[in-house]
Write a protein that binds this DNA or RNA. Structure first.
Length: 594
RNA sequence: GGCUCGGUAGCUCAGCUGGAUAGAGCAUCAGCCUUCUAAGCUGAGGGUCAUUGGUUCGAAUCCAAUCCGAGUCACCA
């Protein structure tokens, strides 16, 4: 149990004993003591005044006294300032914690709890390459999956590939018309980029055709519908649905180019999936559910044959679930896939990492599932994240302001190489080690930058800031780790000393480290309940900062005494382990040297 | 227009289940490398927590209204 929980429990028991009333955690607050006061944790007394009818000072006095008398293994001293009861935690408690855990690489992680969770993320379209927004999605999804694992869940990482539809046909048409049989190989281009080029080409041609038609006197709406290339694309979609062989062949060929490209990107950023769903396989799912929903009167049919659900009682609108021509809409397959996932894996929770532009859609989806009394309806969780914007405003593919994923990653790696070379600390590194290091630093910077912000918030991507190596960055944390490992290599020759040789009083900076380390398990838990990796990023940054102050102020190798040296080495190793563990929860590796 | 989300230092962000003088990083300025990695450390300046009212012993945090910004409300996906 964490010291905070121990404190809460002890305080509740003490209050009950003192005042013969029952109390709960909500009756008072526990905070970490501010640095300017004596003590480690603080109980706030004000909220107890009303029911106990004593002054906050009096309550604090009595409670403090009772705590150090009856829980002396945890608390050794107290002081009261106004209504704040500051408690000092026993050094023996910290020592014990340190000795038990400093070597453990799994510190803070929980045992398997028997529950299965699915995290769906990435979910790209196969008509263009991945961009910065996808990166936020992928890093988030991957990290949340790791955080869930650390909390004892079995996690299935999944991906739904949007591999069919009118947007896919657009790049197919353009390739057919304008590529002269070119392939990624012949063009020397990465498959997804290659296909993306034809998607852009489609839009160029389409715009021209629309403009010509407008010039010829058509209205804009008419022109957009009648542009020949658009008509051909629509025909191609019909042909695809009919399974026309040459269309299917082309579709497969081009999608495979894209998959090859995606795989390269996924591999370079460390993304992986346990299960990939393809829209071309799932888009018909859900149709029978619609039929059953009709029978249950959850849905109703309009005169033209289209099928709807009325959500106006829930404050939403009516929503179509099947077109008048009998084909399904986007949400239909989502209903089907949601049920399919549940039946296939019997998952406890189904997490969808999807941008907040789809908040409404996801709300409707879950509501429909609930109305259909689907067993998993309550366990769907939309991990909604904010858009990534540029300092110049939003990314717009039409205006060419989209930051390409591969480009930005390569740039990060190149910049980390340049910066590392300038610092000149890696002269004795082997070629392989250097390549690995640049990747570690560049990708680490990128991931940390995107994960350090609360997922639900829109974030601004500032290129200069993202490639920074100072302050609140991945490299700062990596550097701290490398520094610790360097000293450990030099100083730890034998096993560290047994417990009884430990000194009794921690210095302020030593204490700060052990307090921060003690909080790690609670942080992992918090990140999990909030589905929020930024909790980890903030934590590990603070831990690193604390360590760096400690490192600058106190000598480890030349400590005042051998026992102090042992203590500091343990604190260092403990910190290193936690850094490595935290960073791994964000998919960031840490270098032994840098 | 309806619904949802947001507004904290010049910039990027923490803090939001109410608690002590609102915190980091970047940027600016001043210091610290003959001793464990200076990708570091120490210090300084910088705030009407959008505005107004309310609840409370106590409000950046809760409630209401207003202003500003974003998203969304398709027989698109």
């Amino acid at each position: 149990m964490s010291i905070v929980n121990t404190l809460k429990k002890s305080a509740i028991e003490s209050l009950t004993a003192l005042y013969a009333q029952s109390f709960t955690e909500k009756d008072f607050q526990v905070n970490q003591t501010k640095p300017e006061f004596e003590g480690d944790y603080t109980l706030v007394m004000f909220s107890l005044v009303k029911s106990l009818k004593f002054s906050p000072e009096t309550i604090g006095q009595q409670l403090g006294e009772h705590l150090i008398k009856n829980y002396s293994q945890f608390f050794t001293a107290y002081n009261i300032i106004k209504g704040f009861l500051n408690l000092t935690v026993a050094d023996s408690y910290w020592q014990d914690l340190l000795n038990k855990n400093y070597k453990k690489s799994c510190y803070g992680k929980k045992e398997f709890n028997g529950k299965k969770v699915m995290v769906e993320y990435a979910s790209p379209n196969t008509n263009k390459p991945l961009h910065l927004g996808h990166l936020r999605n992928i890093f988030l999804g991957w990290s949340v999956a790791e955080i869930l694992k650390a909390n004892g869940y079995e996690v299935i990482k999944s991906c739904i590939v949007n591999d069919r539809g009118i947007h896919i046909c657009k790049s197919m048409i353009a390739w057919q018309r304008f590529a002269n049989g070119a392939t990624p190989e012949s063009a020397g281009s990465k498959g997804d980029h290659f296909v993306g080029k034809y998607y852009v080409k489609f839009n160029d041609v389409y715009r021209e055709q629309v403009a010509d038609l407008v010039k010829a006197g058509k209205s804009k709406d008419e022109a957009e519908k009648e542009a020949p290339i658009m008509k051909d694309t629509q025909q191609m979609l019909v042909d695809w649905e009919d399974g026309k062989p040459e269309v299917i062949t082309l579709w497969k060929k081009m999608n495979n180019w894209v998959y090859k490209g995606f795989d390269v990107t996924y591999k370079s950023i460390g993304a992986d999936f346990d299960k990939t769903y393809y829209e071309s396989n799932t888009y018909l799912l859900g149709k029978d559910i619609v039929q059953k929903g009709m029978d249950k009167k959850v849905f109703y049919k309009k005169d033209d044959g289209s099928i709807w659900i009325d959500l106006t009682n829930e404050g939403l609108d009516e929503k179509i679930v099947q077109r008048s021509d009998g084909t399904s809409v986007y949400i239909t397959q989502d209903i089907g896939l949601a049920l399919h996932k549940y039946e296939q894996y019997k998952i406890e929770q189904s997490i969808y990492v999807i941008g907040n532009e789809q908040n409404y859609h996801m709300k409707v989806l879950q509501l429909i599932c609930k109305k259909l009394l689907m067993p998993n309806a309550d366990n769907m969780y939309h991990l909604s994240y904010g858009m990534v914007e540029l300092t110049s405003g939003k990314m717009k593919s039409r205006e060419g302001t989209v930051v390409d994923a591969d480009d930005i990653i390569n740039e990060m790696i190149a910049t980390s190489q340049q910066h590392t070379e300038e610092l000149g600390k890696v002269k004795d590194f082997m070629e392989d080690e250097l390549t690995e290091l640049y990747k570690t630093i560049g990708l680490g910077a990128m991931k940390f930058y995107l994960l350090r912000v609360d997922p639900k918030k829109t974030m601004i991507f500032n290129p200069a800031e993202s490639i920074d190596f100072h302050g609140f960055t991945g490299s700062f944390v990596q550097y701290t780790y490398a520094r610790i490992k360097s000293i450990l290599r030099k100083q730890i020759t034998n096993d560290l000393m047994p417990n009884d040789l430990m000194p009794n009083d921690f210095l302020k900076l030593e204490k700060e480290i052990i307090i921060a380390a003690e909080q790690y398990p609670a942080i992992i838990e918090q990140a999990c309940t909030e589905h929020n990796p930024s909790v980890i990023a903030n934590y590990v940054f603070n831990l690193s900062k604390t360590f760096n102050s400690f490192y600058a102020e106190l000598s480890i190798a030349n400590a005042e005494s051998e026992s102090k040296k042992q203590l500091r080495l343990k604190l260092s190793l403990f910190t290193a382990n936690i850094i490595k563990s935290s960073m791994s929860l964000m998919g960031i590796s840490v270098p032994e040297r840098m």
